[in-house]
Design a protein around this nucleic acid. Sequence first.
RNA 1: GGACUCGUAGCUCAGUUGGUUAGAGCGCUUCAUUUACACUGAAGAGGUCAGAAGUUCGAGUCUUCUCGAGUCCACCA
Length: 715
Amino acid sequence: MNNQRDEQKIYDLWQKNGLFRADPDSLKKPYSLLMPPPNLTGSPHMGHAIQHAIMDAIARFKRMQGFDVLLLPGVDHAGIQFESTLNKLLAKENLNKEKLGREAWLKRAWQFKDEVYQSFHGTWSVFGISADWPKEVFTLEQKVQKAMLKEFKTFWEQGLLYKGAYIVQWCPKDNTAIEDVEMEYEERKEKLYYIRYKIEGIEKFITVATARPETIYADTAIAVYPKHHRFSKFIGKIAVNPLNGNLLPIIEDARVEKDFGTGALKITPGHDPLDFAIGKDHGLGILHSVDKSGRMTKLARDLAGLKVAEAREKAAEKLEKLGAIEEIKDYTHSVPVCERCKTVVEPLVSEEWFVKMKPLAEKALKHLNEINFIPKNYHKIIKDWLKEIHDWSISRSLWWGHRIPVWYCEDCNPNHLVGKNEDVEISLEQPPHPCKTCKGGHWIQDDQVLDTWFTSNLWPFATLGWPEQTKELQRYYPWSFELSAPEIKYLWIARMIMLGLHFMDDIPWKNMFFHGTVRDLQGRKMSKSLGNGVDPLDLVDQWGTDATRMALYSYAAPGRDPRVSRQTMDERCKNYRNFATKLQNLYRFIYELKPEGAATEPNFSHREDVEIVRYLNDTINSVTNNIESLHLHLATEELYDFIWHKFADSYVELSKKRRPAAQPCLEYVFKTCLKLLHPFMPFTTEELWQKQHHGGKPVLSEAGKSIMLTEWPGA
RNA sequence: GGACUCGUAGCUCAGUUGGUUAGAGCGCUUCAUUUACACUGAAGAGGUCAGAAGUUCGAGUCUUCUCGAGUCCACCA
């Protein structure tokens, strides 16, 4: 079937009859699938298409097996991504956050959310997803807000939350802190500068290597590795900052690499994580020569206001003039960039909120083997990461998201510190009562919002109504099945495990399936900037939903990265489009061209009947097993091979010689095949199931009942 | 530096616990010409399963090493 109107009609019929709805009161056994919420921005890509195709096939299969299936959809507000998309749009209107102010900006944001949501939501049904739409959840809605408050409050009461000035990865373009897991590295050819710092009082120098001379303004010490062969004699002496004359203690620290550069390191706690750690242990101060917008601060004197790249050259020129440069080497290294906007990330010190993850990770490690990872090696990958867990930085300097539910008493806590707790309240609304410390009532809410993942990671239970103990929560948690792209295995998957165990005292899902990353023929990720993407909606337009789905299943081997182009996808889709046509023709042959006086009673005793039924039973068994073990690529290939080659090419051809006698077997095999195909090709199978002969009742369906309501064949 | 994945036909890929002659789709060659279906059917060419060694009665599959491709983590002064 290649007519989207027909598909829409069938989809509407399913919806109208409530066939996608889960029923918490059902006596059937529950089977729950949690759809990964796509980001609010952007149109569906191949990754979504493959996820949805897999999820939906399993949901349909389990329904036919007699389970009460919950396939729960949702949408993620995608904080940073959404905000930057909106801000780009606003810039075209010569508007920005500052001009609008928080309230007006948020109004615009919600408007924009509705626009984006509508445009991309319509595309979902195109894939035939049999999701329980009335249960759909958006991560910013009230239900999730309540869950977020509970989460935050619980962490707070358990002493797992803290706020403080720490070195964070700052994206100057998105203007917020991001996490390590949200960064990428790019190989860049840069320079490594060897800078001489004069030792105070004597005519000697200590030389350090740096790639970032512009941060020299923010140096607070020089560190050398223990028992340095040349510099250990300078320990305890003072070096002079060549750019501003600041006095820098020379210290010893084992974290300085012996074999890198000169074995001496300038310590800039404000702009480097290692330096920050060393500085903390040695009680050094923190200075910033670069600000949060990526420009030089007043500390850089006449370079103030310049961008980092420019300031780097200017600083190098100055040092050159001062004769402080010993050597400049070419230097290729990886530079951290923001995963989303590819801007060079600036490590700097900022006031942020963190969650202590160690206790959560420890519990997760204990229960990790209760989850069936597919493929299996992800168990080890997640385990290794949990063992080396870092605290989770949860605050973002954005407006799009859940605002941190913390209120500070402006009268006695004007710096918005956290620690004593009496002058801080955790609440969604302004506290109605005065501050316990000073009896003042001037509350100010924390300015930042929470990391998008702070709520995404509650997904397995917030979507079911937690913290309320709903029927759904008790029935569908833990989820039977979850799937994910490998890219977000730490950001999302590992954290859901930790939070699930922490708040629900149980793993979030029993089966965790990782599909591959769809790549181009050269193995590169698909991206807008490379222009190598394939739009799944184009494929659906050209070849129909079912053909596109079938093409996707052939790439659904667990954990394998498919390499595709528009051309290779077209080839496969065309193949399955032809397969759908084959099914139409089989129907025509078997039912519409049924001979007069054909046998009606099944009597599969003829050698050919016995053989095809045996093949069919083998196929049923093996397709069932392959779906259960999530080898959808094998299940679809077997069906294709059986129907096309064994049934159509061989049995159907042979049957022509003895058509009247073969009729019951033809009908039986064909009907069974439609059921077996339904999870993968929902529209074509339903269309044939409902097809009417000479304007009468449907031939296959009893009383027009959907094929979705038939029982999964057993051998 | 640590971990993981992969290397099979011209291309994209299957090949679940080791078991006859290694498969599919596309592409290619030849034939069939209106058949339920040309969005078709029949036949065929095409592979030292990256390389080497080992375990085994038997290895695409298990082990070790080499070469090549890619991913993730850590570090990058």
